[in-house]
Amino acid sequence: MQLSQEDVKHIAKLARLELNEKEVDKFSNQLSDILSHAKILDEVDTSSVEPIAQITGLKDVFFDDERKDCEFTDELLAQSPMEKQDHMLKVKSVF
């Protein structure tokens, strides 16, 4: 399978990555190779198989629903490179 440059640009947009033309070219070839290789999975019959996402079989892990204060509110906010105002971050306009 071959990913076109348009495909690559579309995925990059979904992934919020800005790629230059050289990167688009490189990734369209590399991603095509990698995804073509993945097509060998079609050889495996999975028609009656449930997919797995939790490998040790744990389910429904609950903890007490208690309110806890964050110990690091100010330190965490201080990590942001954005302007701050009353424990809020000020970001650029959407449009």
Partner: peptide
């Protein structure tokens, strides 16, 4: 075709 297929093969490998 990709993610779900792989998640099924994973179940078989386990």
């Amino acid at each position: 075709a990709f993610y779900l297929k792989a998640a099924k093969v994973r179940a078989l490998m386990k």
